[in-house]
Computed example of a mutant assay.
Amino acid sequence: MCGRFTFTTTPDKIMERFDLSEILFELQPRFNIAPGQPIPAIIEDQGQRRIGRLRWGLIPSWAKDEKIGYKMINARAETLQEKPAFRNLFARKRCLIPADSFYEWRQTEKGKQPMRIMMKNEEPFAFAGLFDTWTGPEGQKVHTCTIVTTKPNEVVKDIHDRMPVILRQEDEGVWLDREKYDADLLQSLLVPYDATQMRAYPVSAMVGSPKNDVPDCIKEITEPA
């Protein structure tokens, strides 16, 4: 599962890292992004990458009630081609969700300890995402997304039994290319990220509330003895 993440990278660095020509909205540092909120997402249209905002929590186009989105913040990589909500999106509506860390909670003798998981070099990366557009009863269009998850790597496995799919930078273009659909190739990208490039450290329990979206959320603490 992936239920919280951060994206604190500066707009200039985002444009360079993800090959974007412009960002048409104000991008503020986010230290505790939660489901139901608008999040940055990157798609490719006729060879050009564009970044916009999608609501986190997928509402399939055929859904009768938008509340289903709160149950679909993640999509399991192993069953993408089987689930009706994801099968067509896997073929045609793939996106990148930029981030620079995510949170998971490790069970300890004294309760759950939130951990921040990130790259050792602190560089931004991209989750594999799927998106869709739902039209409400009054004609309003809602653009939403979900984050693909996979089994954990060596850094994450002692914290949680799932982790978000982090794409290798060289594979991001393949994931975004909607003109070439090779299910086996795409499925091969949905694997745990190289653990040797990642680290995890404990952070304050304040990240448990999405109301807390401040730099202290990512501050490393000393775990309770």
Rank of each mutant, 00 (worst) to 15 (best):
D12H: 13
I33R: 05
K219W: 14
K64H: 13
H143T: 07
F18C: 14
K13N: 11
I39P: 00
Q48H: 04
R162M: 07
P202S: 08
T196H: 15
V156I: 09
L20H: 13
R94K: 06
K93E: 02
K157N: 14
E154N: 15
E44K: 11
P137Y: 01
L80D: 01
N88H: 09
R116P: 01
Q140Y: 10
R168N: 06
Q28I: 10
P114E: 11
A200W: 01
R116L: 07
T8H: 03
I23R: 00
A75E: 02
Y201G: 06
P152Y: 01
V207C: 06
L130A: 07
K71I: 04
I68T: 10
D45Q: 09
V155F: 08
T150S: 15
V191P: 11
S204P: 01
P29L: 03
A225T: 15
A75V: 06
A205N: 11
R106W: 07
G111I: 02
N74Q: 14
P224H: 15
E16V: 08
K67G: 10
P210E: 15
E44F: 15
F125E: 00
D216Q: 14
P202D: 12
G57F: 05
S101L: 07
F131M: 06
T9Y: 03
I73T: 03
H143E: 07
G111K: 03
L186D: 00
V155P: 00
D171I: 04
L27E: 07
Q197C: 10
P210I: 07
D19Y: 12
P114D: 14
A77Y: 02
F25W: 11
I147K: 03
T79F: 14
G57S: 09
I218W: 01
C145W: 00
L80V: 06
G136V: 15
E16P: 05
G57R: 04
D100G: 04
F18W: 09
T8Y: 03
Q197H: 05
W175Y: 10
M115K: 02
I39S: 00
A128W: 01
D184V: 10
A63V: 06
H143M: 12
P215T: 10
P202M: 11
T149E: 06
G173F: 05
C217F: 08
T6Q: 03
E78H: 07
D177H: 04
R50D: 02
I14G: 11
C145Q: 02
K219Q: 14
C2W: 09
N88V: 15
P192E: 05
P38R: 15
I33L: 08
E66Q: 02
K110H: 08
